[in-house]
Design a protein around this nucleic acid. Structure first.
Length: 288
DNA sequence: TAATCGTGGTG
DNA sequence: TCACCAAGATT
């Protein structure tokens, strides 16, 4: 039944796709890997400028691998989840050391790189190398939940049922374009909060819309307050290290977060995560 | 499995 | 306004 989705969605994509730099034909596998990791839980609009700067600065894995990891963290800026910067740096070194300087093309080899999970491995294997994989990101999962399963939202964690469904929908030809088209539909039309069904190419056969767009019934979907959390504290501390050149005295870190217990905990966790170093007693810096 | 990991735009 | 959410991964 799902194959009826292919033509309308592919036609819609051909007309409406955004022109994103990592989708251009000249985008290298490295450029695509960098984009995919930057895009994890991060909107396109915020990724664009950072990705462009990274590509100019580090056009190859070898270029990034030659830098200390702290430089990756510094140029990550305020993208969020800065361990991704360390992951990309570790990817660059692993690719240089173990893959002859080229981003691997197989799903399994990609999956073995730091920070590359099921989604990212499938995405890079597809978009950089033309492989045929089920690419299950939040957009695809939501589109399939609605169009096929008739539910407003997918389960919190990806299920075997979802994966089987996505695999059953893989087209015989050009699976990568199918994948990016469904993702784009989810990003631009079949959005989480205010879906634009009037603009949807498959509104006529969407199970959720045909059922009258019933509200999600299961348990509450979320709960991620941020103010006052360790995450916010870590962000403040790391911003100080990023904006400094070289080591900073601990007093500079003490100044940005009042709660001492929480601040110490956060600082220790940054060091434990490899996002900060203690070159001398009482001073901190990005990892050199 | 569920908690944790940043940041900023938005309905 | 503020809770929600964005091309997830890891432990």
């Amino acid at each position: 039944m799902g194959t009826a989705l292919h033509t309308p969605i592919l036609d819609w994509y051909a007309e409406k796709a955004r022109d994103l730099p990592w989708r251009r034909p000249d985008a290298s596998p490295w450029a695509i890997l960098v984009s995919e990791i930057m895009l994890q839980q991060t909107p396109v609009a915020r990724v664009q400028p950072v990705w462009t700067e990274w590509m100019e600065r580090w056009p190859t894995p070898a270029a990034l691998a030659a830098e200390p990891p702290g430089e990756a963290v510094r140029h990550w800026g305020r993208l969020g989840y800065p361990r991704r910067a360390l992951n990309l740096h570790a990817c660059a070194r692993a690719i240089t050391a173990d893959h002859d300087g080229r981003v691997p093309s197989s799903y399994d080899a990609l999956r073995g790189l730091p920070g590359v999970g099921d989604y990212t491995a499938a995405a890079v294997a597809s978009f950089a190398y033309g492989g045929s994989h089920a690419v299950l990101d939040t957009n695809v999962r939501r589109v399939l939940a609605r169009a096929v399963r008739g539910e407003e939202y997918p389960p919190k964690a990806t299920t075997t049922v979802e994966r089987r469904l996505a695999e059953s929908l893989l087209p015989a030809l050009d699976a990568p374009t199918w994948a990016v088209a469904v993702m784009e539909l989810g990003a631009l039309v079949c959005t989480a909060r205010a879906p634009r069904c009037a603009d949807c190419p498959v509104a006529g056969l969407c199970a959720w819309r045909l059922a009258g767009r019933p509200a999600h019934d299961g348990p509450e979907r979320r709960g991620q307050t941020y103010a006052g959390t360790d995450r916010q504290c870590r962000g403040r501390l790391l911003a100080v290290l990023r904006d400094a050149h070289g080591a900073v005295p601990k007093a500079a870190l003490d100044a940005v977060w009042a709660d001492e217990v929480q601040r110490e905990r956060a600082l220790d966790s940054l060091v434990a995560d490899g996002l900060a170093e203690v070159p001398d007693e009482g001073t901190y810096r990005l990892p050199a």
